[in-house]
Design a protein around this nucleic acid. Sequence first.
DNA 1: TATTTATTGTGAAACAATTCACATATACAA
DNA 2: TTGTATATGTGAATTGTTTCACAATAAATA
Lengths: 217, 217
Amino acid sequence: MVNRDTGKKKISESTIRRLSLYYRALSLLEKENYETISSRELAKREKLTPAQVRKDLSFFGSFGTRGLGYPVSELKDRIAKILGINRIWNVAMIGVGNIGSALVSYKEFQKQGFAIKLIFDNDQRKIGSNHKGLIVSDIKEMPHLLLEHNIEMVVLAVPAIVAQYIVDEVVQAGIKAILNFAPINLKVPDDVFVRNENMSMELEYLSFAISNNYTPN
Amino acid sequence: MVNRDTGKKKISESTIRRLSLYYRALSLLEKENYETISSRELAKREKLTPAQVRKDLSFFGSFGTRGLGYPVSELKDRIAKILGINRIWNVAMIGVGNIGSALVSYKEFQKQGFAIKLIFDNDQRKIGSNHKGLIVSDIKEMPHLLLEHNIEMVVLAVPAIVAQYIVDEVVQAGIKAILNFAPINLKVPDDVFVRNENMSMELEYLSFAISNNYTPN
DNA sequence: TATTTATTGTGAAACAATTCACATATACAA
DNA sequence: TTGTATATGTGAATTGTTTCACAATAAATA
Ligand SMILES: NC(=O)c1ccc[n+]([C@@H]2O[C@H](COP(=O)([O-])OP(=O)(O)OC[C@H]3O[C@@H](n4cnc5c(N)ncnc54)[C@H](O)[C@@H]3O)[C@@H](O)[C@H]2O)c1
Ligand SMILES: NC(=O)c1ccc[n+]([C@@H]2O[C@H](COP(=O)([O-])OP(=O)(O)OC[C@H]3O[C@@H](n4cnc5c(N)ncnc54)[C@H](O)[C@@H]3O)[C@@H](O)[C@H]2O)c1
């Protein structure tokens, strides 16, 4: 009955991604003043099955009450803890071009606990300029600034051609988490996590889908 | 031996996404003047297994030569055809704010065959203004303009609060493919494809990974 | 307090994706 | 030609993920 945390259960990537969905749904439910939510209702909102919801959550503990459902606020907090978002992360943005500055302007990240503390570029016209209260630092200063400001995550928004070079420096500085927008397969050591945000891939998926009358699930 | 296309094989989402990876890798190989590539080499470049590469491709035909590998240019073209990117897609951008204008400025999409033909906003200060050669249209004109310009895909970069309302109009206009940046679960009919680009989810995944010393694969 | 109702938590079953392993085919060298 | 090396294409085996189905349990009701 009790789901003791015996360390190394294998959590699938899909489960982790769904935790994000649950978290967002629960945040909304909290605003709508729901006290509890059943796996059935939560599943319906995220277009999943109730069993899927229960199984996902069961990997981390038993958070619900039989006959009643899950306590909204409490479950939300539990998931925040599981995802590691019950805290502030110090983030640096590298490359303040089109995408980089759009992201820096986006206040939601800050609200969700991803605080952009430093922004870097190599363009002399940009260095020293002000972006939403942040001064663009010279990329040359990156290695020591990342350390000094306890940066733990980096968003890469530089041209693909320089991305690997910069990542090597980022890794040198001890960063273990990178969100990469450059359309390139970055090489990093095993203990560094990279997520790629690749809009072309999503467009290609859509292209495939309509071209082939694709029917998932 | 011959892999006749008998219509409805079930292609997994993962396979489709990997086709995009193969396509990008092959484009690069072509530039590097490779004539042929083995599944082993291709797999290595994309951090996959050779068997995975061969299996993925085998769903669509047999493109390789035993003992030699796959012909780079030809395979690239074949994949382009499979993905439906051997043509130009007419795309509309809805919402010309931070993200929307960053995407409009990004010339790679055009090069990859995703041609942004129309851009929409509801802000009077933006309507009529010029963005990279495109004039911002009034969102009120969207329904008929989408039809008139044969738009087939739409990128949604509007605030979450209005996203569902706009999607309903987009669907009304017969659009079957939507790339959505708003952090909301859009409701659409079964024959409309939506891909969500959600950076918060990626950051949360990274957060989970470093918080839990996560080891995928 | 007893009964009914709702819903969880979870092994087992079903389904899906990946990897194995090898017969088969081609290139190329001798 | 013939032989050797290489690498595909694919059923079968394995591994991973989702769904099923139901005992367990708490809440609500009588
Ligand atoms: N803009 C988009 O919509 C979009 C979409 C998908 C992918 N991307 C990718 O995101 C990345 C950035 O795209 P963008 O459109 O913002 O490009 P951009 O050219 O507008 O911005 C890149 C920025 O990086 C800076 N830079 C270049 N070299 C640098 C270095 N060595 N050190 C530090 N900074 C450096 C440039 O000065 C510039 O400010 C690219 O890899 C691009 O392929 C962009
Ligand atoms: N900027 C980012 O980095 C970022 C990151 C992740 C997600 N997003 C999401 O992308 C979307 C856009 O973000 P943004 O930062 O570009 O916001 P933004 O406010 O800069 O841009 C939104 C644009 O949509 C327009 N708009 C508002 N209502 C409209 C309507 N009814 N019809 C047509 N246009 C309308 C606004 O005038 C504005 O130009 C949001 O949903 C946001 O949550 C943005």
